[in-house]
Design a protein around this nucleic acid. Sequence first.
DNA 1: ATTTCATCGTCAATGCTTTTCCCTGTGCCT
DNA 2: AGGCACAGGGAAAAGCATTGACGATGAAAT
Lengths: 335, 335
Amino acid sequence: MATIKDVAKLAGVSPATVSRVLSSTVVVSPKTKTRIEKAIAELDFRPNAHARALVSKSTHTIGVVISQLADPFFAQMASSIEDVAKKRKFQVLVSTGSLDAQKELTAIKSLQAQRCEAMVVNSKALADDVLIDLAQRIPGFVLINKFIPQISQRCVWFDNVAGGKVMADYMASLGHANIVVLSTKERVYDATHRLNGIRQSLSQHNINLPDQHIAYGSPDYAGGREAIEHLIEQGITFTAVLCYNDAMATGVISALTDLGRRIPDDVSIVGFDDVLLAKYCMPKLTTVKYPIDIMARKATELALSLIAKDRPLNQSDKDYQYKPFLVKRESAAKC
Amino acid sequence: MATIKDVAKLAGVSPATVSRVLSSTVVVSPKTKTRIEKAIAELDFRPNAHARALVSKSTHTIGVVISQLADPFFAQMASSIEDVAKKRKFQVLVSTGSLDAQKELTAIKSLQAQRCEAMVVNSKALADDVLIDLAQRIPGFVLINKFIPQISQRCVWFDNVAGGKVMADYMASLGHANIVVLSTKERVYDATHRLNGIRQSLSQHNINLPDQHIAYGSPDYAGGREAIEHLIEQGITFTAVLCYNDAMATGVISALTDLGRRIPDDVSIVGFDDVLLAKYCMPKLTTVKYPIDIMARKATELALSLIAKDRPLNQSDKDYQYKPFLVKRESAAKC
DNA sequence: ATTTCATCGTCAATGCTTTTCCCTGTGCCT
DNA sequence: AGGCACAGGGAAAAGCATTGACGATGAAAT
């Protein structure tokens, strides 16, 4: 690929002048300018981003860490981030952490090596003190899925406990008393939070939730099937199922339909996240909204404003907490 | 962020020695090695990828161009690419083109500026001659969704015409004669190819497909709903619906169910792509498999082997064409 | 005591662009 | 005509890591 020197030679000027045309900070005579532009086009020249980064000490790059690209929830998140970044002329660098602390750290380190200026991180596995340390080291570091008091200004987060409550409150309001919960066996804190919220709500409503009524599966369709089948095998009866996420809920719908149970007539089901899936499946899923698109946008803007000298942090925003709300569709009904 | 000089100073050695430790090409005594490693850890030093890229003339980066990250189909694609790339220690740089020729070109140019060595491109809008030009300019350039004779060795592609045939053949074999087709109004060539395949098949089976039986919508749930509703408003009757993709098919399922029609008893529906959605929805979608994960893997390996001097291209592979096949589930039945 | 490695420092060059400083030439004013 | 201002553009340094050649140092071996 051609360099700026090649362009300069072809246009009969010095590299400095070519650079001036590229950045258009200084006035260059129209004649030479068009001559240079013609040379650029002819050689198909693109300024080397690495050389630029080196000298300007800025890369205009935002790094994103998510668990997996293929998951619709994270895909949506990455997409929203890219959208905001693009408007600010930032490149997006995506790295996946796959629920593993070591891999998450590797992903972050790799983004650091690329000298990302901003970073939006969804960390499922890293310990809080590691994250605090990273936040203090990296100016544009923002967490998108958890709240850590010491770095509260860098946390855009979702109230999972309230989410659990919303699910359980709704089921209670519909008159359900035989409730089972499908959580995930992945050791992620949000599952615990949601479960805590469910427990709080149910005890307020004087509804019993024995441990045998909680099953654990992988956070996807298959995991939902297996978990609900496991409960049925155990001889447990229920009229309502609270799921860790929408994908598991679709697994439950499928398994129960196969067994001839009607939804929501025989069994009510509530999902979590409100990914596209929830609208598409049959019956349409009643679920808890996790406004990941808005949150991702906010997190990106926060990260970018953290590194912008001219645009200072809006100090009135002490907190970037987002609350869940129920999206009523067709999978839950009165008992 | 600390530089290699800072590390050298702290460890009491020269920058060259630090570099030797980092690349581990030359023997360094264990004592100094640990001293340097300690300094690296203490300063949290990460070699500047840009400086490295500049001197080594290699970035170990693969660029990906897709229409939208949020689409499950593309998310799956990006995920598979990342998987293969990671194993080869390649960074992935994702850029979106949003079905727009200008934006696709901008995305590619931006990846070029980053000096991506390999590139996997899903181009929906760029003209063939532009793509040919790019392929000749960029050594590791691979197209993943279309076949262009002049650069056949760089094309990993899917036979959309055959895909259209598969759908129509199946419906014909089930005895359907009143068939409608839902295509996309986006001007993408694959929609045309699928439609051509459908037409070929139906004329072979002596089934008529008048133009009024073809509706066009956006390639998603809402588009599917609108398109089928439009046909019904026109007073067109049918027993089978052939959809451009799975998302549209779910829209059709939803719309028809709302109207009290049973699937597949009253109407048979076939989707396209076999994204996760197809398994999750109710009834489960009969659809045409587009093996995007395998294709993405292949495309990535192809791109990487194109730029690897040691691993020459397997010349026996003249062609990287992938064929569709039918995945029979529950949304289609005998007429 | 001398040779011989192993180990590491020094120096320079390389890669590409940006930016500061400085020089040239032209046109204008008095 | 002389002087000045200013536009336009060149030269060179800086930014960071790698690599090769070559030299220096020290310790171990003969």
